[in-house]
């Protein structure tokens, strides 16, 4: 059992080296998790302004999360597949051989599936994480507290995504984390401005 898992992991490592899966998957993950966080933040702000019931917040956000997830999977699958097929064809012309049944072809197929799944899961999971106060803590919190906790999780998620990018680029993780938070502040600020700040029930 353990040796089978090890063998599969080794194959996956090989595919990763050949098709550079981790680099692209990382990029897609951050981009789409970021999209997911900002989208759910927008829903939270809009819902707070009009005083939506928590159930409405949950169903709207989960609906949006599912839509972003499906869009991510479909979009990434089709674009990655097209790109990888083009690369394989070019390589086939250079090596004068068919590559679809080789390690290179298998690595490209694996890359397409892994990247599509990551691309779809990232926004859906970030939506779920932000909604945790609404999903799990509703019996213990007031509606206002749920919004505050969700906003805190959203900003923390943005910070972590930024810090992750900082780690990749070997920059200050705090600096890149704060830049991400700034994006959340700008997005939230525009939403509040557009939706009418006077309606925001701050009390």
């Amino acid at each position: 059992m353990l040796s089978t898992i090890n063998a599969k992991l080794k194959v996956l490592k090989d595919y990763n080296r050949i098709a550079k899966i981790d680099r692209i998957a990382r990029r897609y993950f951050v981009m789409n998790a970021f999209d997911g966080v900002l989208a759910i933040m927008g829903i939270l702000i809009g819902s707070y302004i009009v005083g939506s019931h928590p159930k409405v917040v949950i169903s709207t956000s989960i609906g949006a999360g599912i839509a972003m997830g499906v869009s991510g999977i479909w979009g990434a699958y089709l674009t990655e597949r097209a790109e990888r097929q083009r690369e394989i064809r070019e390589l086939e012309r250079a090596t004068l051989s068919k590559l679809s049944e080789t390690k290179i072809g298998r690595a490209a197929t694996a890359a397409v599936f892994i990247i599509a799944i990551i691309d779809g899961l990232a926004p859906f999971l970030s939506a779920l994480i932000i909604l945790l106060p609404f999903l799990l803590l509703s019996p213990f919190l007031t509606v206002k507290q749920m919004y505050i906790y969700s906003a805190a999780i959203a900003f923390s998620t943005l910070f972590l995504l930024g810090a992750f990018l900082g780690r990749i680029s070997k920059e200050s993780m705090i600096k890149t984390g704060l830049i991400m938070i700034l994006a959340g502040v700008v997005s939230g600020g525009i939403s509040i401005f557009v939706l009418g700040a006077e309606n925001l029930r701050l009390t």
Binding site: D14, R17, I18, L91, T95, L96, I104
Partner: peptide
């Protein structure tokens, strides 16, 4: 032999 750059000659 004519080969693509990846997989590397080490693996092969």
């Amino acid at each position: 032999v004519l080969k693509p750059h990846e997989p590397s000659i080490l693996d092969m």
